[in-house]
Simulated assay, not measured.
Amino acid sequence: MADTAPELVSLRVERKDHVAEVTLLGPSKGNAMGPDFWRELPQVFAELDADPDTRAIVLTGSGKNFSYGLDLPAMMGDWAGMLGGDSLAGPRTEFLGTIRRLQAAVSSIAQCRKPVVAAVSGWCIGGGVDVIAACDIRLASADAKFSVREVKVAIVADLGSLQRLAGIIGEGHLRELALTGKDIDAARAEKIGLVNDVHADQDAVLAAARELAAEIAANPPLVVQGTKDVLGHEREARVADGLRYVAAWNSAFLPSKDLGEAVAAFLERRPPKFSGA
């Protein structure tokens, strides 16, 4: 596969035989999602959507992990106004815009007309789960671990997991994961339907994802795109409504002492002590 778009920092795009492979690069540890990622993700998927030679996409992570999720220290600039003691209409409105921008970045995967197969190894946390929930098919290696962890850092998950996962794993499993923030392994992920199949290791899951994408790409491209469009018609309308609601909820209620405590505990590498304030 030949590299394209060398100006990208957080993603690598390679194309071969009608299949594009998008790899998360970080640059933060564990492919954590910082400002570069949120800027580049919708750009990449818009370009792949418009590329007539691309018929299917594989999405994976570099190194041992898919993604640690949101790069909290790198994103603190967008949150600074919300963490002050007097975040009134101005800071809240700006934060609402930030949430909507990040939501749109994740939704660019679901809205891309080309089917996307996620190949997950190692940790897939928070924003990583948002991203794979927006994909069409998910595969995992045996060492993969998943966590809808936002509740543990005093955040209502707002980038699509709560809206998309119900249709993938069902309400009961979603509520368990979202309300506890627990980690689950690849075997549990397969059992509840979060991933279709589990493969022995990272090389094996990537090979399986490439094979599946090639199988999709061999079909009539306009029919494949039409099938994805029809399958997503009801869901994406419902998801869009849920995303608007959670963006408004978080811009109103996210500022809290517990959020400040969660951020401080993360930066100081200690367990948080939540007070409910």
Rank of each mutant, 00 (worst) to 15 (best):
A2R: 11
A2D: 10
A5G: 06
P6T: 00
L11D: 07
V13F: 01
V13C: 03
D17K: 12
G26R: 12
K29V: 09
G30W: 00
M33Q: 08
D36I: 09
F37Q: 01
R39P: 00
Q43G: 09
E47S: 03
E47M: 04
E47N: 03
A50I: 07
D51Y: 00
R55G: 06
V58C: 12
T60M: 10
G61R: 04
S62H: 07
S67A: 05
M76T: 01
G77A: 00
W79Y: 07
W79D: 00
G81A: 03
M82Q: 06
G84N: 05
G85C: 04
G85R: 04
D86W: 01
L88W: 02
F95C: 02
L96F: 05
G97E: 05
T98Q: 01
Q111E: 15
Q111H: 13
C112M: 11
K114G: 08
G122Y: 00
A134H: 14
A134R: 14
D136P: 06
R138V: 15
R138M: 11
D143C: 10
D143M: 09
F146Y: 01
F146P: 05
F146L: 03
V148P: 03
E150V: 01
E150G: 03
V156E: 09
A157K: 07
L159T: 08
L159N: 13
L162R: 11
G167V: 13
G167E: 12
I169E: 02
G172M: 11
G172F: 11
G172W: 08
L179D: 13
D185Y: 08
A187M: 14
R188W: 06
A189Q: 05
K191T: 14
I192K: 06
I192V: 14
L194Q: 02
N196T: 12
V198I: 05
A200V: 08
A204T: 07
A209M: 13
L212E: 08
L212S: 10
A214K: 06
I216D: 01
P220S: 05
P221L: 00
V224E: 13
D229W: 15
L231S: 13
H233G: 14
R235G: 10
R235F: 05
A237E: 14
A240E: 08
A240I: 08
D241A: 14
F253N: 00
L254M: 15
P255N: 08
L267D: 02
L267R: 12
E268M: 15
P272W: 04
F274T: 00
